[in-house]
Design a protein around this nucleic acid. Structure first.
Lengths: 124, 124
DNA sequence: TTAAGTGCAAATAGTTTGCGGGAAG
DNA sequence: CTTCCCGCAAACTATTTGCACTTAA
């Protein structure tokens, strides 16, 4: 656990806005100005493989989430903001007898709600 | 409706593997060798805005789906293949009285199932 | 005829990687 | 020590765009 990795994790854990690698880079550079973007990418990848954080994809960009418990996301179709949905939602079960399911192995289920966030809803 | 746009739509409608723009490009070039990748991107974007097709994102890449009815997707975490889930799944309703929901406007709900496809499940 | 679309090539955005030097254990 | 990690810069992948020319309506 290097100083860089620790700082990246620490800074990510302070926020709930699911930043992309570039935004994490901007933030950690305030503390460690010589850190490189490559290091940020490498560590975000490692941290998510190790289960400390979660990697998400929205609108073609990787984003990172310090929460690793089961929860879902909302993404604003207007401004692109990504938010946690602040309450649990049960994901629908697929009929466990179906052939389709038997042929596959389901590892994760993600619910994506798309729409307008409070700010964008107001200004429309 | 140009010859290029028609061909792109036609070829996409022939498949259910949710190709990326590059794969659509490879296919339409068999019929129109001088078509450019830019044209393919522009038309896939236009067709999805016009509601003829649907634009998806998986693993940071745009993919296109000729089906526009409500359905969900499965993505293989090993090989990246994207499939339609062949039966309807009810998306969970959020408590319509919740403040969280009242402040937002939900437009779409997507369910992403992630796991191993039949081929990858077998070879593991 | 003219507005919309095309091919081409260059530009951009996001991400990954090879390498030589440096820090952690 | 010695392995893992870093900073840097170059490479790569996916996508977008400006421009001069062409085509559909």
């Amino acid at each position: 656990m290097t100083q860089q990795r620790q700082l990246i994790l620490e800074q990510l854990q302070k926020r709930s806005d699911h930043p992309g690698a570039d935004e994490v880079y901007d933030k950690v550079r305030e503390f460690l100005p010589k850190i490189s973007l490559g290091t940020v990418y490498r560590n975000l990848e490692l941290l998510s493989e190790a289960g400390y954080i979660q990697k998400l994809f929205f609108k073609g960009q990787k984003r990172f989430d310090p929460r690793t418990d089961q929860h879902h996301h909302f993404c604003c179709t207007n401004c692109g903001k990504v938010e946690d949905i602040p309450f649990p939602i049960d994901t629908p079960d697929i009929d466990s007898g179906s052939d389709w399911l038997k042929q596959r192995e389901i590892q994760e289920v993600h619910l994506h709600y798309l729409g307008l966030c409070p700010d964008c809803k107001q200004s429309q």
